[in-house]
Amino acid sequence: MLRTRRVSYLEGLRYQGKESMLAWVLHRITGLGILFFVGTHVVAAFFLNAIGDNISKSVTLWYESTPFQIFIYFCVLYHAFNGLRLVVEDFYPPVLRYRRELLWLQWLIFLPVFGLPAFLMVLSLFSGSA
């Protein structure tokens, strides 16, 4: 069978899925975020060796900036926690009856693990030590 897309992205996003659909959308966005980070890293390394280190330095400066570091920290951490939740669900299907509780538990663990270091990063940015 020829493989085609049945529903466009825009039409699909109009569907009123609940929190699990949002979790999945966020999983995709954070996955792309990680891919973007790895991409900039590769680009910086390429410029360093191939062209010269001015472009490399500016790319590195950009992805090492605090806002981008916080963004990438969010992406990696969310993607990992959400992925772990999916692994647990696949290995122990009976827990799927408590999917909402599992999702809340995920956020309950995620928020302090993300929030505290992110807060410290912002703090060091404003104190000028970043």
Partner: peptide
């Protein structure tokens, strides 16, 4: 594991499970 199926099922079947 997006659960749209489970939410949509009019017979309340635990589809994702």
């Amino acid at each position: 594991n997006i659960y749209n199926c489970t939410e949509a099922c009019p017979r309340e079947i635990q589809v994702t499970q």
